[in-house]
Design a protein around this nucleic acid. Structure first.
Length: 424
RNA sequence: GGAGGUGUCGCAUAGUGGCCUAGUGCGCCCGCCUGCUAAGCGGGUUGAGGUUAAUCCCUCUCGCGGGUUCAAAUCCCGCUACCUCCGCCA
């Protein structure tokens, strides 16, 4: 949700932001007319309600005929007040419904357009030249099989397509990555968290995942729970309906949680291996701060992600996501895409978004300062999405004999192993 | 899952249909007093919305949502969270 005053004062700016996302600019006008209807309904209700209250007091004091006369009037009023209250509530709901459809206003700095209109900001590291090294790289699935790192056949047998078991060294690799990510995040000032992965509707809606993204979200209808697609959800809702003293900001959290995604509309895409799955574990970074400080914090999150990938010795590029690919909540998003040798492409490993006030308004996360009380900004960024990180590590660090070298920083978390060797 | 109890302002509490415009204490903020501090004294102190140039003012907010009533913190129903007990369980 964005500040209604911006819409009222400069509707054209908001329409323009919609166009840059490839979304409907007419929504702005629907919101404004719903707002007008809402405000006049509120005024009508309040007028009647004020009269009812003042007459009610007279009734309490009056006796005899006076009282009977007043009661006649108040009985009529009671009906009118009820009607006005109902139509006021309806107008409010209509307004909220349209308002909740509106995505955050894309930053003017975010490139206009859709998924393919990103801008590459930089390249870090050099993809290996396997031809020069004299061997053909194996893809992560083949490497994983040889190392005994994961089992997708049995994943499919038990849970269906896009499921897997991490096995042996693969399971240890997850724990190593999680441990390392958590330690480094903690050193950078993030509080480690292990949040619930099942949340109620308001948390899901508040983070903006029940908009266009709703088709990708698992829902448990019996209990009206949602399975989170990222711990961004329980972290954003953590301080919902709270007022934080701005002197305690920024509040930085690093959460480890499973992530569940339907991957609707991705049939046939990335079906091989564990690159795109319905469930994976992830360490996520999350910050609450002021809107003014959010832009610098966004850079900090990106910096953390870059250093993480550099330390894992993965070649990658950073892209500035186009407005149409921002998701509902973000004003700007940077993705770090690692080079995947057998795909010959850069693929998303981490992503960091500045959601400014959007989620905070929906979730009632506010900050108190000398200037008063206002919504905070929320930001999120991937620390380590386990499965994709494993894919990138295996493919980029494979050796001619099918073994995989372990980046130096990760070795202490893997019993000091320098290399993962095929088991058969 | 079953039975019972509780939910009032940051905290603790008062409040069994109209004097509630929710009182009191603590905490906090401002001021007075004062060698300094403490005490004392006076005032302020939930949040949201409407209106406004801004103030004023008005409405909503006693866990949430309905209902009864001219009128609800107060009565009734549903939900939710917490506490106690029973059952089940890693």
């Amino acid at each position: 949700m964005i500040d209604l005053r911006i819409l009222r004062q400069d509707p054209e700016k908001a329409r323009d932001a919609q166009r840059r996302r490839g979304a409907a600019p007419e929504l702005i006008d629907e919101i404004l007319s719903a707002d007008e209807a809402r405000r006049s309904a509120i005024a009508a209700f309040e007028r009647l309600r004020a009269e009812q209250k003042s007459l009610g007091k007279q009734v309490a004091r009056a006796t005899g005929d006076d009282r009977a006369g007043l009661l006649e009037r108040t009985k009529v009023l009671a009906v009118e007040v009820k009607q006005a209250d109902t139509s006021q509530a309806e107008a409010e709901t209509r307004f909220q419904d349209t308002m909740m459809q509106l995505p955050n206003l894309a930053s003017p700095e975010a490139p206009a357009g859709g998924e393919d209109d990103y801008v590459v900001l930089e390249h870090v590291g050099e993809p290996r030249d396997f031809a020069a090294e004299g061997f053909e790289p194996l893809d992560h699935l083949e490497l994983g099989k040889r190392l005994g790192a994961f089992d997708v056949e049995r994943g499919a047998k038990v849970s269906g397509a896009r499921f897997y078991y991490l096995t042996g060294v693969g399971a240890m690799l997850e724990l190593a990555l999680v441990q390392m990510a958590m330690e480094r995040a903690q050193e950078a000032g993030f509080t480690p968290m292990i949040p619930p992965a099942l949340v109620k509707p308001h948390a899901m809606a508040g983070t903006g995942f029940l908009g266009q993204a709703a088709a990708d979200v698992y829902h448990l209808p019996d209990d009206d729970f949602y399975l989170v697609g990222t711990s961004e959800v329980p972290l954003a809702a953590y301080h919902s309906d709270e007022i934080l003293d701005t002197s305690t900001l920024p509040r930085r959290y690093a959460a480890f949680s499973p992530c569940y995604r339907k991957e609707a509309g991705s049939y046939g895409k990335d079906t091989r291996g564990i690159f795109r799955v319905h469930w994976f574990d992830k360490v996520e970074l999350f910050t609450y701060t002021t809107v003014e400080d959010s832009y610098a914090e966004h850079e900090r999150l990106l910096q953390w992600e870059k250093e993480w990938l550099i330390s894992l010795q993965l070649p990658f590029r950073v892209i500035d996501t186009a407005a149409g690919d921002l998701g509902m909540s973000a004003v700007r998003k940077f993705d770090c895409e690692a080079w995947i040798p057998t795909q010959g492409k850069f693929r998303e490993l981490t992503s960091t978004s500045n959601c400014t006030e959007f989620q905070a308004r929906r979730l009632g996360v506010r900050g108190r300062s000398e200037e008063g009380i206002k919504p905070l900004a929320t930001l999120n960024g991937t620390a380590c999405a386990i499965t994709r990180t494993i894919v990138a590590l295996l493919e980029n660090h494979q050796q001619a004999d099918g073994s995989v070298s372990v980046p130096k920083v990760l070795q202490p978390y893997l019993q000091g192993r320098e290399v993962l060797t095929p088991i058969a």
